[in-house]
Structures are given as C-alpha cells and as structure tokens.
C-alpha cells in the first residue's frame, strides 16, 4: 500500500482540525508510516466472501419511549462553555466578508 507523503500528513491534520507545528508533523509522518506498514499486511487476507462487521454482538436496540422528561437547566449546560451570555454559547462568526460564494 501507499506511503503517506508529507503533503498527505498535512492534509489529514487539516481534516482532523489539528493545528500542529512543522516538527510535530515531521514526527507524525515517520510514525504513521511505520504503522501503515502493519496495516498493509491486511491486504493479504482473503475477505472476498466475508461480510463487514460493524458490531459483533447483535441485539435488538429498542429506542426509549418518546415522552417529555426533565432536561438539565440551561445554566448548568452552559457553565462549561468558555464564553457564554444569556443562556447562549458565544461562537465566533462563521461567515466573513472575504468568504467566497
């Protein structure tokens, strides 16, 4: 299987929203490629007639009744937010004037 290039490592870090330094990215590039060598061995396993398993213990998963019940008070929920005001969590603007489209 393919080897991860530096550009791919940077792309995956961006997808994962991990802001990493150049040194951290370099270290990860080496480590990830060693681990990918282990993964590559799976390609040798014949799974042409095997179904994928997402969960092995197959059980009915009944949904709970859709009835109203008490929820946590708003101030309890928002007290862990780094910035909140009037029962709302403060978030930075997601649109900017320079945004394309």
């Amino acid at each position: 299987m393919s080897k991860l290039t530096r550009a791919e490592v940077e792309k995956v870090a961006a997808l994962a929203r991990l802001g990493l330094t150049e040194a951290e990215l370099s270290k990860l590039e080496g480590e990830l490629n060693l681990i990918l060598e282990q993964w590559a061995r799976l390609a040798q396993v014949d799974t042409s007639h095997v179904a994928a398993t997402a969960q092995t213990i197959v059980q009915p998963m009944p949904l709970r009744d859709d009835t109203p019940g008490p929820s946590l008070p708003v101030d309890e929920v928002t007290r862990n937010a780094p910035a909140h005001v009037g029962g709302l969590i403060r978030v930075q603007a997601i649109l900017s004037e320079e945004a394309d489209g």
Partner: peptide, 24 residues
Amino acid sequence: MLGTYALSAGYYDAYYVKAQKVRT
C-alpha cells in the same frame, strides 16, 4: 490522524472496510 486517514476519501475501502471484514 490514523483514524481520519482510514476514513478519508480514497482509503476508506482499503483500510476501514477491509478491517471490518477481517473483524468478521
């Protein structure tokens, strides 16, 4: 990083789906 890569476009079948089959 490993997980994001395994689930990313182009690698999902080769890694994640393959692993789920071996899991079987």
